[in-house]
């Protein structure tokens, strides 16, 4: 990797959730993993943070309307 894409100003902060955080998330929204938005395993950021298939990534975005906004993405291998 020639440079750190995580430092680019278009890329927000990504982090992988721990197992218990994942459980808390699914329980709070009463959903299944598959109902979350997705991110490909081959995504440059997924590779940069070392995400595996099935991980859930927490994304902390700078939002023009709320200041900070949190999103979650499930890492999948490919779109069928």
């Amino acid at each position: 990797m020639k440079f750190d894409i995580l430092k680019h100003k278009l890329v927000p902060h990504h982090e992988i959730l721990s197992q218990e955080e994942v459980e808390k998330l699914l329980k709070t929204y009463n959903i299944k993993k598959e109902q979350l938005p997705r991110m490909l395993l081959s995504d440059p950021v997924a590779k940069a943070i070392g995400a595996k298939e099935g991980d859930i990534v927490k994304i902390i975005r700078k939002s023009p309307t709320a200041g900070i906004s949190i999103a979650y993405r499930l890492v999948v291998k490919e779109i069928i």
């Binding site: 959730l17 808390k24 709070t28 929204y29 949190i70």
Partner: peptide, 10 residues
């Protein structure tokens, strides 16, 4: 049905 969630969940 369901509850209103305020703020980030995790």
């Amino acid at each position: 049905r369901g509850k209103l969630i305020k703020g980030p969940a995790v």
